[in-house]
């Protein structure tokens, strides 16, 4: 790219550049000329005035391309400039590998705007599968700064689905989860990979190994909501099987026995019990030890659990109270059956 796109060079005002002498800048429509106090604003206003001129003249030229680069650097959120840049790139048939470098340069300063990602995808789409390695590298750089970068994750998912590159993705998720086990984005990507990778055989094929991986993660940080949700996700549409997996009940017991970070474990146990788990003596004992002495002693397991949850998570007390009410409704038919059986005996 031309020298005036390099950072660090002293800027010549556009009005003093010979190649722009034929262009009459177009000031912004709706305001008086700003009384500019700082040089940066001077530069900004001048660049935008020249941009308006080439945009209105629909000038799809090399100098216009360079001007869009200057304008985007000053205002990367301005979508009109990006769109015009794409028009120019198309018209000139410009080699697009360099365009990836340009996007990277802009993203280094601010990667949290939609325009950068939209443009990046447009370029990558035109380059096709040869872009995969570079796109992985680019998103990785973003994750080094912010491992939950929403745009970067969406972009990475798009690359995987459009061009492949699944081979190392599960390992990559693993690495990010090791870096920060609370990174919900990495957990989401893990789920994306095990359910969508053409190489892994799908959710059912992955379930056993994933359950054990997840349970180990819960052991490390039982207060982390991500692996608990992930565990439920592994039994998507089949909570009955979740309730009969002995590993799940035992991780609940293990966490509850520590008497701290109870919310997620209790919530899971509540789900298990509501879906048919016959709680072991160990589980019953630990729940009993958590219930206030003032609670009625003849409560069923599910209602005891929700009472404890109301206590340990007061901010969501209404939610847990509601859970208690639905649990009662769910178990009621069984109690009725027992009652009727008792009568006929």
């Amino acid at each position: 790219m031309s020298s005036d796109e390099d950072q660090g060079t002293i800027r010549t005002p556009i009005s003093q550049r010979p190649e722009w002498a034929d262009i009459e800048p177009v000031p912004q429509h709706d305001g008086p000329n700003p009384v500019v106090a700082i040089a940066y604003t001077d530069e900004f206003v001048e660049t935008m005035d020249y941009f308006r001129a080439i945009y209105l003249g629909n000038e799809l030229s090399t100098r216009a391309l360079h001007l869009t680069a200057e304008a985007i650097k000053l205002n990367p959120g301005n979508y009109t400039i990006w769109q015009f840049r794409r028009q120019i790139l198309e018209a000139l048939g410009t080699e697009l590998h360099e365009e990836l470098d340009f996007v990277e340069q802009i993203a280094a300063a601010s990667s949290k705007n939609y325009q950068i990602w939209h443009h990046r995808r447009w370029v990558a789409d035109k380059l096709g599968p040869e872009a995969v390695a570079k796109e992985f590298e680019f998103t990785k750089k973003c994750f080094d700064q912010d491992a939950k970068h929403y745009h970067a994750w969406c972009h990475r998912q798009w690359v995987l689905q459009a061009f492949g590159g699944w081979e190392n993705e599960l390992n990559y998720c693993q690495r990010l989860i090791e870096d920060d086990i609370f990174n919900n984005s990495a957990w989401n990507q893990r789920f994306f990979v095990i359910t969508r990778s053409p190489l892994l055989g799908g959710l059912e094929a992955m379930r056993t190994s994933e359950v054990s991986y997840t349970i180990n993660s819960i052991k490390a940080h039982p207060e982390n909501e991500s692996p608990w949700r992930y565990l439920r996700g592994l039994y998507k549409n089949d909570l009955q099987s979740l309730a009969t997996d002995p590993l799940v009940a035992s991780i609940c017991l293990e966490v509850l026995n520590t008497k701290s970070n109870l919310v997620h474990a209790l919530n899971m146990l509540l789900d298990l019990v509501s879906h048919g788990l016959q709680a072991s003596e160990g589980l019953r004992n630990v729940v009993d030890s958590l219930v206030l002495d003032s609670a009625p002693s003849d409560l069923d397991m599910a209602r005891k659990i929700s009472l404890v949850l109301e206590l340990v998570d007061p901010m969501r007390a209404n939610y847990w109270r509601w859970r208690r009410s639905t649990v009662t409704a769910q178990t009621a038919p069984f109690q009725n059956v027992e009652g009727i059986t008792g009568l006929t005996l």
Binding site: Y150, W153, C154, Q157, R196, G233
Partner: peptide, 16 residues
């Protein structure tokens, strides 16, 4: 829609 009940920007994207 994701397994946590939330929605993302495209299929498979994290709930936000």
């Amino acid at each position: 829609k994701n397994v946590d009940g939330g929605f993302g920007c495209t299929p498979g994207a994290e709930s936000h």
